[in-house]
Design a protein around this nucleic acid. Structure first.
Lengths: 292, 292
DNA sequence: CCCATTCTCTGACTATAGTCAGAGAAACCC
DNA sequence: GGGTTTCTCTGACTATAGTCAGAGAATGGG
């Protein structure tokens, strides 16, 4: 269902965008160098970040930087905080050449719109926006993650920060019911973390209680990826995990201010039930049976 | 208007499709070889066609074929008709390896759909279809072409064939009003030919009469590119050309069976007028003033 | 039938991309 | 404060991509 259409799209798009884009980049400098020049950006960039973003061998990247340096486009200087890390920065000449690449990108985009009528342009841009958002959504990876992992910690911190900002009287960790790292580690429970380009962008957790309902906790989605359906995806995945670990019901509590979460739960088939715990910050309690 | 959105799209798509696609292709053979293997296809392919489709140097392509041949994936044999042309054909082993590439393309497509919900998939496929069609439309090139050129001849032949098939009593060239090659060559007139991937896919012509209305003739769009707005694009371009060569009115005659053409003329602002010539195959005469 | 053209191939290169091992300096972690 | 890890760099390679000139066979066009 849809594979052929996707492949047609992939073909057309590689031809019309992939190939031309590379050709434009490589016009007056090897593609590898041009990519590095572009990626450094106007504000400079740590070499280690370049390496991971472009997925280059450290020796190879070093050599690319050396050649850009000898052409006077880049300087690589000590980073203040950490003596091992070095930061690449564009010289005035480097900025100028990056500007040329920028203009070429504009030209490519313009050449795609130019032959089309006004109404076709509007349709193209709308459809591109839709494809782009959905492709980004499909690049998000969701994986069971140790709550002590840096990505997990970031998500949990962001989650608590958001609660503090949105609850009527703020949020104080100590007053709330617990969900320690141990409680969110198998076999007691688990934590899912969603990442986009290796950056954490969302999470959700489960606490298991044997045959008793599993508790859903710590649902958080970064504002950067709102609208990509990540909340629903995390929820679905958590339900699958709960079922796989033997729960036949999932339940959760939530605060009245988290309206989009409440809407999500309702639309995913959760029904409101009487309070099943004494979480002081909760106003609503939901549960859902995990049918076969 | 829209440049930034297009650039965002280009970036996301190069990352998610361009890069991965190449990586998949290159997994067990250099990218160059893999591309040739793919392009030869199940039915074989003339070497000259490979060269133009992949835009490769003839020496380089020859070497790539040699290495595929020595791996037992390809045979290059004499083409029957022309002793200079050689045809590459996949061996059984070559077909098998191409099958692997085919499966990888499927996997890539599937991996794009897999993380999405059912409704997101439907939206993605719809939007991809729209983008793909409009990108193809934007790849069509329209240029003033000598009517004696092979592409022009192909279009005119196709045009007459179509008239023969669609008119109530067929179409006989000799009975119709003329528009010879000379009449469709500047300064007497001109012919626009539309090409997609260097293949002719449509045409349209003008005959100039000084200050008098220019005559629009020979509008044809290949069935392969229907729905891409090419008819309207040719019409618009012809009107610009007519204006540029001093005409203030364009007029044309057409047959009642060419309903989509008639609809196009009406929607582009043409109004029906009394017969201004005695073209035996015409039922409707239209004209349009070229306002500044 | 001869001359120009087309098509493919080989030889002889250069340029780009990428890999791997190892070294030296700085920072981190008990 | 000593061992481990992180970060960057150099040296020494290999592999891939691509270019250019020219040769030889086949064809096409006067």
């Amino acid at each position: 269902m849809g594979i052929d259409e996707v492949r047609r799209f992939n073909r057309t798009v590689s031809q019309r965008i992939g190939a031309l884009n590379d050709a434009y980049m490589a016009r007056d400098r090897p593609l590898g160098q041009a990519r590095v020049l572009w990626e450094i950006g106007a504000d400079g960039c740590d070499v280690r970040v370049l390496r991971s973003r472009l997925d280059l061998d450290s020796g190879y990247l070093s050599r690319l930087l050396r050649s850009l340096e000898s052409d006077g486009l880049v300087v690589v200087e000590q980073n203040g905080a950490d003596g091992r890390v070095r930061t690449a920065r564009l010289t005035r000449q480097g900025l100028a050449e990056r500007g040329v690449l920028d203009r070429r990108s504009d030209e490519l985009a313009a050449s795609m719109l130019e032959p089309l009528s006004e109404s076709q342009r509007t349709r193209l841009i709308t459809a591109m926006g839709e494809v782009e958002r959905l492709l980004v959504a499909s690049m998000v990876e969701v994986a069971v993650t140790d709550p002590r992992h840096a990505d997990a910690q970031y998500c949990l911190r962001s989650y608590f920060d958001e609660l503090g900002a949105r609850f009527d009287d703020g949020f104080e960790h100590a007053r709330s019911l617990s969900a320690t790292s141990d409680e969110l580690t198998l076999p007691a429970g688990l934590l899912l973390v969603a990442t986009l380009h290796s950056q954490p962008v969302g999470c959700g957790a489960l606490k298991f209680h044997g045959d008793e309902p599993a508790e859903l906790k710590r649902m958080w989605v970064s504002a950067d990826v709102r609208g990509l359906g990540l909340g629903r995806r995390l929820l679905t995945e958590l339900e699958h995990q709960a079922a796989a670990y033997g729960a036949s019901v999932v339940r959760l509590e939530t605060n009245r201010n988290l309206t989009e979460a409440i809407a999500l739960y309702r639309s995913a088939g959760y029904t409101e039930v009487p309070a099943f715990n004494d979480e002081p910050y909760a106003h609503h309690w939901f549960e859902k049976p995990l049918g076969g």
